[in-house]
């Protein structure tokens, strides 16, 4: 079983979000980047669990400059066998998907996993684009993934219940909460990661959209506090002022 896990970096959730260059670029000064949680906690860990039970090889792939090394080493420390960095500067999801597809098309991966979205762009786009570019089946937002008789069996949320989806291999799956539990790298993993190979491949990242400007939401007006002895006032405000009940 040859598995490819797509990894993105994202600002740590507690980072201060601000912009530079006339609000066209994220200000990464003093920002700590982490592995995008959906990629790490769910996609990567499930890939490792499959390898541990069935054997195989888990590669991680990421698209971007040399600064990605920190998150790539983390992924290797958690347990990926090796990693690929496509040396390109994508400006949108299509750029990321194109660069990965170009690399992966003739490598014979059985299963390609992505997180359900990144916590910076929140697009939920790369997995579907990648599947289309590779001509593979794609199932999004899977909260459970098992292998059975050469196929993947997935669970996805559906209104009032869940869909149990069966997809042939090879395929692309995006991982949501539930697929696995986060793992913390141990000292042995961290030591091993130092010597695991990172392949740097050239690549192109064509764009279909362009970010014109970032902005910050208007500050929230301060909370209206209600006396705990007068809960009826809250109901009155929700009914007459906010008009939500």
């Amino acid at each position: 079983m040859k598995i490819l896990v797509c990894i993105s970096q994202a600002p740590d959730t507690t980072s201060k979000i601000s912009f530079i260059d006339n609000d066209t670029r994220f200000n990464d000064d003093k920002v700590q980047f982490i592995v995008n949680p959906y990629d790490e906690w769910y996609a990567l860990v499930r890939a490792l669990e499959i390898k541990e039970s069935l054997g195989g090889h888990v590669s991680a792939i990421s698209v971007g400059g040399p600064a990605l090394e920190t998150v790539i080493r983390k992924v290797l420390a958690i347990g990926a066998d090796d990693a690929i960095r496509i040396d390109a500067e994508p400006s949108d999801s299509f750029g990321v998907a194109s660069a990965i597809a170009e690399y992966a098309k003739d490598k014979g991966y059985d299963l390609i996993l992505t997180g359900k979205e990144t916590i910076d762009y929140n697009g939920s786009e790369v997995g579907g684009m990648l599947a289309e570019l590779l001509g593979l089946p794609f199932v999004s937002l899977a909260s459970k993934l098992d292998l059975s008789e050469g196929k993947v069996v997935l669970e996805t949320a559906a209104e009032g219940g869940l869909e149990i989806v069966t997809a042939p291999l090879p395929c692309v799956i995006s991982a949501a909460k539930g697929m696995a539990e986060a793992r913390i790298p141990n000292m042995r993993g961290i030591m091993a990661a130092r010597t695991k190979p990172i392949e740097v491949a050239a690549g192109n990242a064509p764009a279909l959209v362009q970010i014109k400007k970032f902005s910050l939401p208007a500050p929230k007006s301060s909370v209206k506090l209600i006396d705990p002895e007068n809960v009826e006032q809250l109901v009155e405000l929700l009914h007459n002022e906010a008009k939500v009940i």
């Binding site: 299509f94 697009g123 939920s124 997995g127 289309e132 959209v209």
Partner: peptide, 23 residues
């Protein structure tokens, strides 16, 4: 931008080389 949109819109974007803004 729900389960169906997240499954299909990116595929269509790649197929038609049509720019996508999701959400």
């Amino acid at each position: 931008h729900d389960n169906l949109g997240k499954a299909v819109a990116p595929r269509l974007s790649a197929r038609l080389r049509a720019g996508l803004v999701s959400g």
